[in-house]
Simulated assay, not measured.
Amino acid sequence: MNLLVRNENPGDVDAIARLTEAAFADAPHTSHTEHFIVAALRKAGQLSVSLVALDGNDLVGHVAVSPVTLSTGQSGWYGLGPISVRPDRQGRGIGSALMAAAIERLKAMGGAGCVLLGEPGYYARFGFRACDRLVLPGVPAEYFQALPLAEGVPAAEVSYHAAFEASA
């Protein structure tokens, strides 16, 4: 595998939608709206980071990162996700490469931190941990995880952009 991770470009948009829909088709704990969420974030100008993974000419992965709002008003925090890998290519390090690239991009942007909603056993390897100082209402605390990129984690309630309510 010759993996290249790069910024999305306009020619990737349809392939990203198809990939994201396929990646979540059989996933547990999903609303099957992830491809709509990415499109709504893009339309709203809220994709702070949108990276694709290519193996040759094949688009095999995508990660989206968007700003989140903290009840304290502190800025510089982002939400990672959705992250998608083509189903027939999962388990080969593509998701890990996208995660590492997205985290590095956030550091380069001067991000204060990143949150995500996901499986603790998977995301712990990237430094994400459940943090009782940051709360996403209605979500079990162990699945809402944070990675501070600067000093300190504020005590705050986190809100994602309205695009995360997209259903079409």
Rank of each mutant, 00 (worst) to 15 (best):
Y78C: 09
G61R: 09
D14N: 14
L149N: 10
C114T: 01
M109L: 14
R133L: 08
G11F: 05
A64K: 08
F144T: 08
R42I: 00
L41I: 07
E151F: 03
G118V: 10
Q46F: 00
A15F: 00
L80V: 04
L117M: 13
G121P: 01
E21C: 11
S96K: 14
L147K: 06
P87S: 03
P140W: 13
R6K: 09
F24A: 09
Q90K: 13
H29C: 11
T72H: 05
L134I: 04
N57C: 10
A124I: 07
V85C: 12
S159V: 11
G56D: 13
A101G: 02
M99F: 01
A64Q: 08
M109T: 00
A112R: 09
E119Y: 12
V153H: 03
G79F: 12
F128P: 08
H161S: 10
M1C: 01
S31A: 14
D88F: 08
R125L: 06
P140G: 13
A156G: 03
D58H: 05
D26S: 14
A97M: 04
Y122W: 04
A146N: 06
L98M: 10
G76T: 14
F24Q: 07
H161A: 13
S31C: 08
G61M: 11
E21L: 11
R133V: 00
A100G: 10
P120W: 00
V65A: 02
V60K: 06
H29Y: 15
A108H: 09
G111M: 01
N7D: 14
V85M: 12
F128A: 08
L47C: 15
F128L: 09
P148F: 05
N2L: 14
P10F: 07
L106F: 01
V135Q: 15
